[in-house]
Design a binder for these strands. Sequence first.
DNA 1: TTATCTAAAATAATCGATAATCTGTCAATT
DNA 2: AATTGACAGATTATCGATTATTTTAGATAA
Lengths: 259, 259
Amino acid sequence: MKGSNLGLVDVPKNAGPLELVAESEPAPGGSWQAAFIDDGKNTIASQLVERLREAIVSGQLEAGAKINLLRAREIFSVSLSPLREALARLIPDGLVTFEDNRGYRVAPVSVSNLREITRLRGEFEALALRQAIASAPPEWEGDVMRALHRLNTAERNAADPATLEHWEALHRDFHLSLLSGCGMPLLLGFCRTLLNLNDRYRRSFLVSTSGDRNVGMEHSEIAQGAAARDAEFACARLREHIQRTGSNLASHLADRIAP
Amino acid sequence: MKGSNLGLVDVPKNAGPLELVAESEPAPGGSWQAAFIDDGKNTIASQLVERLREAIVSGQLEAGAKINLLRAREIFSVSLSPLREALARLIPDGLVTFEDNRGYRVAPVSVSNLREITRLRGEFEALALRQAIASAPPEWEGDVMRALHRLNTAERNAADPATLEHWEALHRDFHLSLLSGCGMPLLLGFCRTLLNLNDRYRRSFLVSTSGDRNVGMEHSEIAQGAAARDAEFACARLREHIQRTGSNLASHLADRIAP
DNA sequence: TTATCTAAAATAATCGATAATCTGTCAATT
DNA sequence: AATTGACAGATTATCGATTATTTTAGATAA
């Protein structure tokens, strides 16, 4: 993670270019939501939310680091007001912490935090999936299968960050499509938050691998169970999937944190 | 709910005094958290968060109403920057919504929203309580019993808003003390959010009653089950309690919304 | 050496003013 | 009559500058 920060963070040797994420590059071959070209997000504050979120989830901003407002102001070429507003909006997502008169920091990571995320994902996503299977409209099944297909046919090459980001987006879409039929906006929001937090761990601590072989099959089983409206099967597979990938991630993290 | 807004809201006949919640009155006989005297919250933005939260949860700010920034700026005697920041921080709590270039509004209320809150509270709080019973330290039991006693000995007089607010605070403390032993910060945060949202419905739509007789006994049963480390009993009673009060509230709300 | 105080520097928080965007009104046109 | 377009007023979003707080560094005393 060293040397990967954006330069706005308080590390003694603040070396490296202050360049930030691809500014005007439309991500070739990507249905990926563009960085900040008009996407309904017109204001600087809203664009900043997305840029900061990506910077944190991708690991560019080191966990636990203090965010120096003046430097961030320079780097992003914005004023303090939208910057502070954007940071405030990231608190609910669990990506930023705040303390009066002491400013904002990137939320820290820990094994126990990851464990809780895994545990809650299992509970919440199973709850949402069960509800979706019970009450989602017919077209939901097709949405799930489409998301699955897109995910399965996407390339994931550890050497090419663009494919990793693309895969992450599709993976997130898949999981959310599974839950989106539940008709419970609050629950969906909680799941989205947890998914965000989980992705952050994966992207920060699992960059070296190209993904294990199991996930593809697991996704397929979950999706087919959902499409067949088999709640027991689908939820059981989903819980296993979350539990297994979470444990895998936790062991990687433990190695990193205590080397 | 008419005539109870703070005057910063876009209702045609903006009558009534613009006075806001007791500004320098320490709430006699109250261990209630003071409005915004130093409580660790030193900054204007943080004080505003609390003031706005109270104004929304208490129903002073009408659900769904647009928040006019300039008027709010006048009323609270602050500048736009901390005001916007405070509003942004309330989005995660589900009390405020936001749309680019269209500003902030008080989050709307609906029967379906209340139903979801009730459902999720049942799931989440039972999960947290089960975990607390399994892993909380011994002093947790005492904390719960103390919170119960405080709640049971508090007066709740429909004619006196101060007693209502005090009771609400103790009620919230009781439920949170039950869950606080779970050792899962994220889950606790979700529960706190849901409790906030639920309180808003109760305070807005149940002001006329002095509380039903059942709740006292229900609270006692839950607390005693928790202190005895009987997970099955305590969780079952907690779910029933949440379900019953939620349904009760939903019927009141339905009457109000569709008169 | 350690601790405590103070001044200076760094940083966070806030403000007042300006720019950008939206909303409602009314006339002109079809 | 309904639709469109342009203007004016209202509101939101942003900026640069100022104020308040915290942190750092240095000096002094125990």
